[in-house]
Design a protein around this nucleic acid. Structure first.
Lengths: 400, 400
DNA sequence: CACATTAGTTCACGACTCGGACTATATGAC
DNA sequence: GTCATATAGTCCGAGTCGTGAACTAATGTG
């Protein structure tokens, strides 16, 4: 049913099969060539040729043969950890962060710079971020990790390398990708923080559904604002103008008060951090958590109230998107012990879903977005190794 | 980023390019081979070979050369109208319908059987549908149209050829695809009526966005229930368990009354036909429409109230999915003159969307679903002509 | 030590697309 | 009319890449 827009040519065939093989190695390593052939449907000879290209490119490595039952023992194939690495960056309301991840997804560098960025000049914050990125780049170099690119998580809308607007940070039209690109010499992508958190949770959160990693779910990130990331078939759903997934502005109280976004009765207005803290009469989230642990009734009531509103929004999300799971992240993960019961009850009160999705709690917390950002860079190489080979043409004859 | 699961082989390359060429012909006919080559990126020689296969299969035909400005005049390529046809069927609460569409999408047979199917035995209704399908099949045969398959629109959830449940018809576990398949000898697919209506609207509704057909929109079908069809990048979004798009059960009144689905305050419960008619104190939708035309205040108030609730649901849809347009169909299309202003106002009151989608009114009305069903069959052939060639292997050497 | 079993490589073959040469058919200038 | 130019479409050799069968390699079993 898909409308194809590109001609299929031999190079594309090869590219597609390289991705198929590398994807299989990434998914089920260690594997043998024979297993890859069996699982992908390619012949052994094709797999051999493809694998040798991937090894030459440094993306795959052979390791010691495993003990076999019968016959010639298989040579195990793994992702080459040092083959490539990704730099993840994050600008958020109250911190900046950087992370370097190797090809297997293991963090090799991680640093968080806590500081409230609301009052500061944009240029100043960008300079700090570039500094952070440079330090991370040097660390990668000293570990022998060639960076393939960078991806920046931003708490707002981004289009083509520029920050369009960030409601809680007050930025508008900031060409952030260029700034970071010039500072580090890397290809830089920008992406919404909630979307990257969802991807991070999918890749590194350890959640499963029917024994396989989650591929269709909604991630709720409760930072200063409430963000949402919709993942469909393993990919972020962005909508027509990259504005999809704004869970924080789903209507949960049609007659409710005006929200900063211009709407009325939005989830963020009714259950955002500001509202919860006001109702509980607390100053910080840390205070609130302590109060909940101590059994403070006002704090618990505030959290339960937010949980109910969250349930209303999620009920609509469930009827509209039919996901297999909902993952609660950020502040909602911290508050989960006192929140989830009310949320689950509210969901089932407001929706008649036959197969209600599972309500999961994030295991990555606030690191989800940076990890997702670094992972995005690495995954891009895994999803299209041919592009990587082309850029770093090593021994190909005929060209130049 | 897509995870590939199938190996790319030569046959697949050819299949992909056949689809590419046929798609181009379908989209911009009449076209010449040279234009197809230029637009697809394939070479003239490849296009020649592909086109001759498509002509041999009866899917494409040459027509008289158009007047040219300079040089050899181009031979025009068109879809061969009689090459293949699709049978669309629809089971709904108060009617059954059948339509045959040729390869170009033109209806060649259409019949609607009005009758309330709620009280009747399932077997009886299925028998009526099979009869209707048989008559349509004979009509297609007499017109020289080879049917490629059939697709049945059902007002409920379907999985693998079986009706799982239809809230407003009371069916459960009906193996409808098998029944129609045995009765007609065709391959039969089942699909949700709201989804097919959305597709029908996309293919035949004549709506445009930036000069191109809509590809990302939400279709609202107000039949007895309120259905929704989400189209993303030209394809229906079904979610993890084929339950996505149930716009009728989005929460628009968190403290509202219980809905038949088990939830509370659903759109369908607050703005469905039953509710509108009750508030307006009318018996039928025809009465209501007449009353609105006559300026009856109670009727107008009921419609405006429904429009407001609809706007709340759509505001959430817009923030979550970021579509380019919303298309109002079914009863909402009929009531549009008195409904849309309230709906638009409610949307903008409840959402702060920067680029609010356009609010369009369906031009197909209740025929959208059958047209979409018939179109689905035909589009499947256009999207994968190689599968069609393989089934109807004509002159291929080597096989058999 | 022969034999079965599994892993991986080699190579001839075939299915493609590409690209340039070639043919076909028009317009316009002289 | 004739020639230059321009565009459409076909033909065929070259190159790419997966297939499949034969072959080599490495292990365990009787």
């Amino acid at each position: 049913m898909t409308v194809r827009t590109e001609p299929a040519q031999h190079a594309g065939m090869r590219a597609s099969n390289l991705a198929l093989v590398l994807g299989e190695v990434a998914r089920t390593s260690p594997v043998s060539r024979a297993q890859v052939a069996a699982r992908t449907g390619l012949t052994k000879s094709s797999v051999s040729g493809l694998v040798s290209d991937l090894i030459a490119a440094g993306l795959v490595q052979e390791s010691a043969p495993a003990a076999s039952e019968r016959g010639r023992p298989a040579t195990a194939l793994d992702l080459a950890p040092e083959g490539i690495a990704g730099l993840g960056l994050e600008v958020n309301v109250d911190y900046l962060a950087a992370m370097v991840t190797d090809l297997t997804g293991v963090p090799r560098y991680h640093h968080v710079l806590r500081r409230d960025n609301r009052g500061r000049e944009v240029e100043e914050v960008v300079a700090d971020l570039v500094d952070l990125a440079r330090t991370a780049t040097r660390s990668a170099a000293s570990q022998g990790l060639p960076l393939s690119g960078a991806c920046v998580a931003v708490p707002g809308l981004t289009v083509e390398g520029a920050v369009v607007r960030t409601p809680n940070l007050g930025w508008a039209r900031v060409p952030l990708a260029d700034a970071v690109g010039e500072g580090t010499g890397l290809d830089v992508d920008l992406e919404n923080e909630a979307n990257l958190a969802a991807l991070g949770e999918m890749w590194f959160g350890g959640h499963e559904h029917d024994g396989a990693p989650l591929r269709d779910f909604v991630h709720v990130s409760g930072e200063i604002g409430i963000g949402g990331g919709i993942v469909i078939d393993g990919e972020v759903f962005r909508g027509a103008h990259a504005g999809a997934g704004e869970l924080g502005h789903v209507v949960v109280a049609p007659d409710g008060p005006r929200c900063g976004c211009g709407g009325h009765g939005c989830l963020e207005r009714m259950a955002g951090q500001q509202e919860i803290l006001a109702r509980a009469q607390m100053a910080t989230m840390a205070d609130l958590t302590r109060a909940c642990e101590a059994g403070d009734q006002a704090a618990l009531d505030a959290v339960v109230g937010a949980g109910r509103h969250l349930g209303v929004a999620l009920a609509s999300v469930i009827t509209l998107l039919d996901p297999t799971a909902i993952v609660l992240g950020g502040a909602f993960a911290t508050l989960a012990p006192w929140l989830t019961r009310a949320t689950a009850a509210s969901i089932s009160h407001h929706s008649g879903a036959v197969e209600p999705p599972r309500l999961l709690v994030s295991g990555l917390g606030s690191d989800a977005a940076v990890r997702g950002a670094a992972g995005t860079v690495v995954r891009r190489v895994i999803a299209d190794p041919a592009a990587h080979l082309a850029r770093h043409a090593t021994r190909r004859v005929g060209s130049s």
